[in-house]
């Protein structure tokens, strides 16, 4: 029983070592999508999270609730939403983005941004409260306060980005729907794994699974370590 397991793993590592061109192409498409969408999500989500953590304003609680609700949305729901918006007869159909990497990036941004906002807001909230008296006492302006908040939470921000990247790499539901898993165009690691599994090409699926696990594990480990460093620093 275990022999077949080790055999599949062995063959998978052989495929990884062989530098299969299609696999390289799929990994490259995945990286392009994950890096772009995680950067965009971070650039939108991190400032929003910091603002929520720093300032009290009317409607803040509503925003936090909306954000937390969006964090829990299933990827396929976002995928269907983006599909409805960008399909040929949809409101943005004339942009011809459906079944492109751009559409996948849009879906990823919708999925990941609330996660970034939530992570940053939660981790920076204690700093925001601790900072309040000193900030008002000194009379720090909004820009200075914002920059100081970013500096105070730099480890948490780095962790939020890394988690965003890992999430973008590992996502399958939404990108399958809006990307269509088209060979040489929108095929990414997760959708390629699903395809290979469905067609019985298990070794390729396992090889890509190993790569994806290694990437997400590596990023999550770095993110986790950074968050621990940040928390320890705050406790000092």
């Amino acid at each position: 029983m275990w022999a077949s397991f080790w055999q599949s793993l062995g063959e998978a590592f052989t495929i990884i070592g062989s530098g299969n061109p299609l696999m390289n192409e799929v990994v490259a498409t995945t990286m392009k999508m994950a890096v772009t969408s995680s950067i965009i999500s971070f650039l939108i989500g991190a400032p929003l999270g910091l603002l929520l953590a720093t300032y009290n304003f009317k409607g803040k609680k509503v925003l936090v609730i909306i954000c937390r609700t969006l964090m829990g949305l299933p990827p396929v729901a976002i995928g269907i939403l983006v599909y409805l918006l960008f399909r040929g007869i949809g409101p943005f159909g004339q942009l011809r983005l459906i079944f492109t990497v751009t559409a996948m990036i849009i879906a990823q941004v919708l999925l990941i941004t609330p996660v970034v906002v939530g992570m940053v807001e939660t981790s920076a909230e204690s700093t925001g409260k601790a900072l309040l008296e000193t900030r008002r006492g000194i009379g720090l302006g909004s820009t200075r306060t914002f920059l100081l908040m970013a500096n105070e939470n730099k480890y948490q921000l780095m962790a939020a980005y890394l988690f965003a990247f890992a999430r973008a790499t590992a996502e399958v539901g939404a990108v399958q729907i809006v990307g269509g898993n088209i060979l040489h165009k929108t095929m990414v690691m997760t959708t390629y794994i699903a395809l290979n599994y469905n067609t019985g090409n298990l070794e390729f699926a396992v090889a890509l699974g190993i790569i994806i696990v290694a990437i997400t594990l590596g990023f999550n480990l770095v993110g986790g370590v950074l968050q621990i460093i940040g928390t320890r620093k705050k406790k000092r």
């Binding site: 601790a130 900072l131 008296e133 000193t134 900030r135 008002r136 006492g137 000194i138 009379g139």
Partner: peptide, 9 residues
């Protein structure tokens, strides 16, 4: 007006 709190950040 400047305020120095008891536990400054």
């Amino acid at each position: 007006v400047y305020y120095m709190p008891q536990m400054p950040y």
